[in-house]
């Protein structure tokens, strides 16, 4: 307390309002007044139903507007022709603090480079820190505001984000022949919801989740 900066003499120090000391009758009078004052606030909201802020969630699903920045679902950006830009460089995998991302690559025989095979993202261990999106040098990841991802089996929370295995969109764009382009890619994802862990079929997985959603 020797420090001058900490004493109450400083110009920025603002003492808070002390509680006044009241007598017996003063307390009764003040008490009744304060209770009525509080009730006035309550009554104001009672007779003004427009001030109610409650949202009826499952019913207002149609009209629910979510900010585009909300981070609740990682997705690999696919352009309008359905091709992504991921080069399987593994930087997102290195940046992920809790190993929620697993990138599986495979050699591409044509140009002796690596290409994306599986992009596996585990929602159950993801903390939505957005680091993978920030560090991606090709901006091919994004966080989406879809939040209704609850399932009955934890294994369903491992997503496979790739729709095909094969080269990036830039390589595919150079290929003019439609038929040749189709041969370069291998469809990976038929069901765009939660998938089996690692893209592989696990024992005991409910049959219905493997069905095509089209």
């Amino acid at each position: 307390m020797d420090d001058d900066r900490l004493t109450a003499k400083n110009n920025y120090v603002k003492p808070v309002q002390a509680l006044p000391i009241r007598g017996f009758f003063g307390r009764i009078a003040y008490g009744l007044g304060s209770l009525l004052k509080g009730m006035r606030v309550t009554m104001h909201y009672f007779i003004h139903p427009s001030t109610v802020v409650t949202q009826q969630y499952p019913e207002n699903r149609e009209t629910l507007v979510l900010s585009p920045r909300i981070r609740s679902q990682l997705s690999l950006i696919h352009d309008e022709s359905g091709y992504h830009k991921c080069t399987a460089c593994h930087i997102c995998e290195q940046a992920c603090p809790n190993a929620s991302i697993h990138v599986v690559d495979r050699p591409e025989p044509a140009i002796s480079k690596k290409e994306l095979d599986f992009f596996i993202w585990r929602l159950d261990s993801c903390t939505f820190c957005n680091l993978c999106v920030m560090v991606c040098p090709f901006q091919c990841l994004e966080m989406k505001p879809t939040f209704e991802s609850s399932v009955y089996d934890q294994r369903l929370l491992a997503y496979n984000l790739t729709k095909y295995a094969g080269p990036t969109s830039t390589v595919l764009a150079k290929q003019t022949d439609d038929e040749a382009r189709k041969n370069m890619i291998e469809p990976r994802q038929v069901y765009d919801g939660p998938t089996e862990l690692g893209g592989f079929i696990l024992a005991g997985m409910p049959e219905s989740t493997r069905e095509k959603k089209s």
Binding site: L19, Y30, G31, S34, L35, K37, G38, V41
Partner: peptide, 14 residues
């Protein structure tokens, strides 16, 4: 109005 001025609150915090 609702809370700080309330006599019960004041007596419980004093």
């Amino acid at each position: 109005e609702l809370f700080s001025g309330n006599i019960i609150v004041q007596e419980r915090l004093r």
